[in-house]
Design a binder for these strands. Structure first.
Lengths: 233, 233
DNA sequence: CTTGCAACATGGTCTATACCAGTATATAAT
DNA sequence: ATTATATACTGGTATAGACCATGTTGCAAG
């Protein structure tokens, strides 16, 4: 009802893709064409596309066009980050849903954290993690594209650390974590089945290889009421 | 050189903040004003602001303005250090107010965490901690009475760790920490100068001596917006 | 056939303007 | 002094155009 036009267009395009109007890899009409179809200005339509790009549903390439990106859901998750172990130790069944999974240009923040050069691409994936089917956390993981080059999607989502060591001889060294607390945004609240403003435990982690190169930047938002972080030092 | 104008403005504003032109909490000029100052359109300037918001450097509020976001106090949890050292390392003036300080019988939870025998007494103190006179945390510390036996109140409240080592040759070994997030209660909100329901980072820590005996149980509630843990592992 | 190049299409950036929905503040009424 | 109310200001959204660098494509020259 009161939502902005570009959100409505966002939803329209999303539904059209889900309905099979365009398949993975297809090029959708140009921004100028779509702007005419939806009776909006090109800038407004770009905002709609932008949100879909951020969700990983679309990919944009200058000069070529906008394409439907690889998406869809996954099962199970890696145990290396500790999530699975933590859940199992508490007698809970861990699971996860991959919300998005695609290659894109990094944000300024990501480029800085991962020490990327201009033009470097990254793989960004968003996941919701569950314990006994109750949403526990929402995480955004960003990995330089050359790290996961040649790996399949299951290899990346299910057991990244094991695969990196086995296939590329890349061994994780240290990690830097930043923990803070904040409130849930509307979008995150929906994913985690909580109310907007509810307490969120935020964890940002930069993982480095043994040679000191950063290879993963993960931002996790845990439901405050359902999660506790235990450290021994 | 080749970077877009809004990236250049992004960097200009970032540097200005780092140079102290605006401090945390300050309102920066409105988008319309800045657009004039930088000789760009408001839409272009908005893109620059947008990137800074995504980095967490700025916050926007409709009707109010754009503000320099709270750069959180970072606690490096590499060693068992006290609040004072952490604040000094961040260049902030630490201070604290002791709300209560009593010898009493422990709660069940405290007795369990501190492995107390029946009838053992504890010293329990509640403190509000400040950095540059801004409330950072509210903490409840519980210590077995025999640990602090013979120590003066300032020795306990001001520099417990140093005093224990100097006077009793008790050296902290490891610690177990549990981190979670919740919302501020009415009472805590008042102490910390925030609103009820605001995000709280909860830390429960059990500190052990080198011989394995627990000697301190601390429950701390940090203001989510003003505090961040940093872990290196 | 291949090569080189020009024309075109595409997303990226930018302008100048407009209106809206919240917020803050000064002002008027009580 | 307190409470409404009007007004100015803020960021959020939207428009209609423009130019750019890059990618694609078709056509001409070899």
């Amino acid at each position: 009802m009161g939502s902005p036009v570009y959100i409505q267009i966002h939803n329209d395009i999303k539904k059209a893709i889900e309905a099979g109007k365009w398949s993975v890899g297809d090029r959708i009409p140009s921004e100028r064409e779509l702007a005419v179809q939806f009776h909006v200005s090109r800038m407004t339509l770009r905002q709609a596309i932008q949100t879909l790009v951020e969700e990983g549903i679309l990919e944009r390439f200058v000069g070529s066009g906008t394409f439907v990106a690889n998406q869809k859901v996954q099962e199970k998750m890696s145990g290396v980050t500790g999530f699975t172990d933590v859940m199992l130790a508490q007698g809970k069944q861990p699971s996860s849903k991959t919300v998005s999974y695609h290659v894109m240009s990094p944000s300024l923040s990501e480029a800085e954290k991962l020490q990327l050069k201009d033009g470097d691409q990254v793989l960004r994936m968003e996941r919701v993690r569950y314990g006994d089917d109750v949403p526990i956390s929402f995480e955004v993981a960003t990995i330089p594209i050359e790290i996961v080059d040649g790996l399949s999607k299951p290899e990346v989502t299910d057991s990244l650390y094991r695969t990196l060591e086995a296939k590329k001889n890349l061994i994780p060294g240290h990690a830097k974590q930043m923990v803070s607390a904040s409130s849930a945004s509307e979008r995150i609240a929906e994913y985690l089945d909580i109310k907007r403003g509810d307490a969120i435990l935020r964890l940002r982690q930069i993982s480095y290889l043994q040679d000191g190169r950063p290879f993963e930047y993960v931002r996790t938002q845990y439901v405050g009421e359902r999660f506790e972080f235990v450290l021994e030092k």
